[in-house]
Design a protein around this nucleic acid. Sequence first.
DNA 1: GCCGCGAATGGAAACGCTTCCACAACAACC
DNA 2: GGTTGTTGTGGAAGCGTTTCCATTCGCGGC
Lengths: 352, 352
Amino acid sequence: MASIRDVAALAKVSTATASRALSGRGPVSPATRERVLRASAELGFVPSANAAGLASGRSRNIGVIVPGVDRWFFAKVVRGISEELLDQGYDLSLYTTGGSHDHQEKVLQDYLLRQRLDAVVPVALELTTRERERLVAIGRPIVGVGGAMPGTLTVGIDQEAAGALATGHLTGLGHRHIAHLTAGKDPHRDFGLTGTRQGGFERAMAQAGLVVRPEWVITSDFTLNDAYARAKALLAAPERPTAVFAASDEMAVGTILAARDLGLRVPDDLSVVGIDGHELGDVVGLTTVAQFPERQGARAAARLLQQLAHDGAPDEPQHETVATDFVVRSSTAVPPSPGSRSRRSAASPSPG
Amino acid sequence: MASIRDVAALAKVSTATASRALSGRGPVSPATRERVLRASAELGFVPSANAAGLASGRSRNIGVIVPGVDRWFFAKVVRGISEELLDQGYDLSLYTTGGSHDHQEKVLQDYLLRQRLDAVVPVALELTTRERERLVAIGRPIVGVGGAMPGTLTVGIDQEAAGALATGHLTGLGHRHIAHLTAGKDPHRDFGLTGTRQGGFERAMAQAGLVVRPEWVITSDFTLNDAYARAKALLAAPERPTAVFAASDEMAVGTILAARDLGLRVPDDLSVVGIDGHELGDVVGLTTVAQFPERQGARAAARLLQQLAHDGAPDEPQHETVATDFVVRSSTAVPPSPGSRSRRSAASPSPG
DNA sequence: GCCGCGAATGGAAACGCTTCCACAACAACC
DNA sequence: GGTTGTTGTGGAAGCGTTTCCATTCGCGGC
């Protein structure tokens, strides 16, 4: 494997000059640079990341910490980050915590300290204060994606506004009986609870002069399957809402499927609105607040690279909001008139 | 940041001994090891990955190349790999090609050569011969996941058997008019076309004495949405199959949703079977061949670590088959009797 | 009682880069 | 024409490990 010494020799310069020519740092005459580049190409030279990292303290490698990669939002975010990074010649080290605090501990304690990372992107991480301190302690730029994190720059949508937007759409249509499928929260989580989707729901309900029925605020786990089961219970009850605001599209689709299996028509008997912009929503005609997670990931990565280019000068810590898009499809409509709120005779047998 | 020299000094040994004690390579007396470990803990010493990698040529970092991480199968595989690796203290570098050959080129050409990787896991990659050679040329262990790759160890299910199993289930139920939703193939792909799901379909059809209607072998792109659209066209045609074998669960679910939107009952009017074991299948009662991609990823990672432990002695190149599980749910049944094969009056209006 | 051997240890040379520092050459300025 | 800068270049000192080699020591076998 060719080393920079070989390149230098072939170009008849010192390794110092070769390094400068290849990295673009420091003055090199055009003629020399050209010679070095040619020599490098001829030898098929690829610099050793380890050596470069050791010598310079920069490794062109950034760490991404995610609860998991097999959830829609996380996967999309990782995709956005990955594309942005690969474009810029950066590597991406992936750490999944599996949502477990043990794993998270381990990752933060050992892995991130090996000085192989120029920066870190925690995605939708729920950190304890200690964990957050540890993260900051590695002394590298950090840009979070998802919820806000005090003291660091984060990129994400305005969760509260999204919740209010979705709910307001329903109240605007005239719905007065609205249920909310929310996602469970980790009690250890650290970042401010202000600005949640549920908060937006509550605000929009209040603004419409509606009262939130506690038994209609249902905690699910962000999965379609769980939401399906909970929605089925909710909708099978003697008294049921005319609309459901689900905190994610997967939960919304689960709700729609549950409704269908109960013989309810969407949107005639039940309106459903979600948040995400999941591809699945298209097939079932889901009205939703699209949030473009790829874009969020890419934005976070871009911010990070920008900081690294400016020699680590950190951006002002804040939550950078990216725009959402309200997509009205066919899962929402005016509520049924009270007389017609009967259950249709079940036509499709439920599976299982 | 504490270096190994500090540890050595505190433990009153040389850096050589400290290194041996910490890494477990080479003889160290129990007493000395104990002292070094204590000193290391006291200083909170974390070895520099770059330095260790540079000096030893091993980096405890393995590369995973995936078309993307926002597809069910890939995400699950990455999850399996990630968990296995983190357990063993290995880092994981993620490279996404986005399915584009340009990106793939770039990844294989530049990124993998930086000598930061101990091994590589290409996932479901369709490589040209040149690309494969390049991959092999980096001289590191390789274990693929997904399709077979000549010359390297791969882990995956028996695609052909899975296809035949699913199809055989349908023919066994008495279906004679069976369509197949398959996934597009990249013409540049290199690995043998033997052993595809479609091949299994064809074999099972032949074994049942059935003829494959070319217009009923429909190429889709593995997404639910595309399959939905194609299934709708297929099922709306004057003459339609009584059963569909979709090469993935997402496509199968798309088919089911399309059927429902057309007023067809599943399984009464149409049987649908898929491959994957996608969570979504549970909600719609999909009969499927579950393939446990996490397990495949974990297995591949384990094989790799095993090779690395045995000092790189590569396993015999072959395709290691992992077991599948045939899950019968409620999307398949005997075909409707000819007389009853009428279309039910559409009850649910299709969205949009 | 000596030799040889293996275990434990230390010194120092890598590993392959980056970058500090020194120096030469040359331009520009008063 | 000296002084001051600027630009291009090379020498060499790291960066923080691992590992080769040499050395010492204790011990069993003859």
